[in-house]
Design a binder for these strands. Structure first.
Lengths: 248, 248
DNA sequence: CAGTGGTCTAGACCACTAT
DNA sequence: TAGTGGTCTAGACCACTGT
C-alpha cells in the first residue's frame, strides 16, 4: 500500500497527523500508485497501516474528497477521481449551464490532424521540445445546434505520442485515447481566459465578420508531477459565451 | 440567540443533524442577526442551545467556514465574514495576483456622479425600479501605473440612497459607505464576464483605438435575502486582463 | 488564568452495497 | 451477512489569545 507509519509520539515533528496522512495519500495519487477510478484502501485499513485512529484518516480523506481528488460512494468505497472538465471555460460557450433547455445538439468536427515542425516557440517550451521537433497538431471545431461556437488546436509531442494523428478521436475524448493507447493519465489542467479581435482564421471558421471580439482560452494539461503533455488554444464567439461567478 | 432546539429523537424528520444546524446558522447569517465581523456564539454555547453534541456543531461550523461565510480565529472565536472581492473578475486586470511585483500604483478616479432618470430598462428591473425613478449613477475609472485599465458605472436606487452622489467615495469603498451611512450590508454579488468591441465611450476612456476587444463584466450586489442594491457594469482593456483557473 | 478553536481518540448506530 | 461510508457522541489534550 506504500504508506508510511505515523504516530503522534514517534515523530518528533511538526504538523497535524491528519495533514501528514493527507499528504501520504496525495503522494500515492500523484505518483499514480492509485489510478483514476481505482478504489482506495478502506479507512480501517489505512488507519491500521499508518498507526493512527480512523477519525484522523477520515479527516484526511474528507478533505481530499472536498477538493475533488477522490470521491466516496457509501456502501462501496472511496475511489480516485477522474479529472472533470465541467468547470472548463470552454463549457460556457452558448450559455451552457445557464440555459434550462439542455437538449441542444453538440458536435465536434476535426478540421485537421497533422505533424508540424514549426509552431510557436512558447508552445515548444511548455512541451519541453526543441526547435524542429515534431509536434502533433489537432485542429477541431465545436458546434452547437449547427452553429460553430469555438475552435481549438491541441499541441502534443509527437515522439511521446507516435501515430496519434492517425487514431480516431471523434467519438471518445482525447484524454481517453492518451490513457488507453499510451497509458498517460491527465490529472489536471490550467486555463487562462482573455479576449481579442478575431483573426482571419477565426473569422472564417466561426463565421464572423472581421473585427469581431472573440474569447481566447489557453490550456495546459499535465500528468503526475506536473509534466505538461498538451497545450490547447481555443478561440470562440463572444456572443455565444458567458462566464458567471458568485462572490460571498 | 434565535436558534431552534434540535435532537435526533424528537424530530420525526429527515436530514442529518449537522445539516440542520448549518441551516439554522445560515438563517441567522442571512437575516442579518449576526452581522459582518461580529462574533458567533461558541461551539459549546450553540451545542447547549440546540441540544446537540459539540462535534455535530463543529461539523456545521467547519462546513460554513470552508464556504467562506464565517472564519475561525484560534483562541478568539468564530466571526461572520465580510464579502471578499478578491475573487472579482475586476481584480484580474493587469494580471494582478499573477505578478510578483505587486507594488504598482493603483488609482480610482471619479468621472461622474449624478442622478439620471433614463437608464437601461434591464437595470431598472434588476433594481426593482420603474421608468422615471431616480437612479444614482457613479462613473469611475481605475488606473494602474497611470494607465487606465477599466472603467465602470454603478447604478443604485436614489430613493434608497439619498444624497449618495454628494458623498465622498474616493478613499473608502462604496460598500463601506453603504454600510456606515445607510446601514445596508452587501453580503454577496454575482458577476458575469464577456467580451465585445469597444464603443466610442470605452475607447475614449481606455485610450484605445476603435475596434479593439474589451472585457465586459456585469455585477449585481445584494443584501440579506437577495435584494439587489447595485448593478455595476465594468469595461476594461483585454490586453491588461487575464483570468486563470485550475481544473483537477 | 479561563476561554477559544485545533486536533485526536474510541466508540456507537445507521443506510447502503454486495454476496 | 459482512463490509463500506455517513452520522453522532463524549471525552481528551494542545496552542493560542485575552485578562
Amino acid at each position: 500500500m506504500n504508506l508510511p507509519r505515523l504516530s503522534v509520539a514517534s515523530s518528533a515533528d511538526e504538523r497535524p497527523l491528519y495533514i501528514q496522512v493527507k499528504e501520504a495519500l496525495l503522494t500515492n495519487l500523484e505518483n499514480g500508485i492509485w489510478k483514476p477510478d481505482e478504489q482506495l484502501p478502506t479507512e480501517t485499513e489505512i488507519s491500521h497501516h499508518m498507526g493512527v485512529s480512523e477519525g484522523t484518516v477520515r479527516q484526511a480523506v474528507l478533505s481530499l474528497a472536498k477538493e475533488g481528488r477522490i470521491h466516496r460512494r457509501s456502501g462501496k468505497g472511496t475511489f480516485v477521481s477522474r479529472i472533470n472538465f465541467d468547470q472548463s471555460f470552454a463549457r460556457f460557450f452558448r450559455f451552457k449551464g445557464n440555459n434550462e433547455c439542455d437538449r441542444s445538439q453538440y458536435n465536434v468536427t476535426t478540421i485537421g490532424a497533422e505533424i508540424q515542425q514549426r509552431v510557436d516557440p512558447h508552445i515548444l517550451q511548455l512541451l519541453q521540445l526543441n526547435q524542429g521537433d515534431n509536434v502533433v497538431v489537432l485542429h477541431r471545431a465545436i458546434s452547437i445546434d449547427n452553429v460553430v461556437v469555438c475552435h481549438y488546436r491541441s499541441y502534443l509531442s509527437e515522439s511521446r505520442f507516435p501515430d496519434l494523428v492517425s487514431l480516431p478521436l471523434d467519438d471518445t475524448g482525447l484524454y481517453n485515447v492518451l490513457e488507453q493507447q499510451y497509458g498517460v493519465h491527465v490529472v489536471g489542467a490550467k486555463e487562462s481566459l482573455n479576449a481579442r479581435i478575431a483573426k482571419k482564421d477565426d473569422a472564417l471558421i466561426l463565421d464572423l465578420p472581421q473585427n469581431e471580439a472573440v474569447i481566447a482560452i489557453n490550456r495546459t494539461a499535465f500528468t503526475y508531477k506536473n509534466e505538461i503533455i498538451e497545450v490547447r488554444r481555443t478561440v470562440g464567439r463572444s456572443d455565444k459565451f458567458r462566464y458567471d461567478i458568485r462572490l460571498g
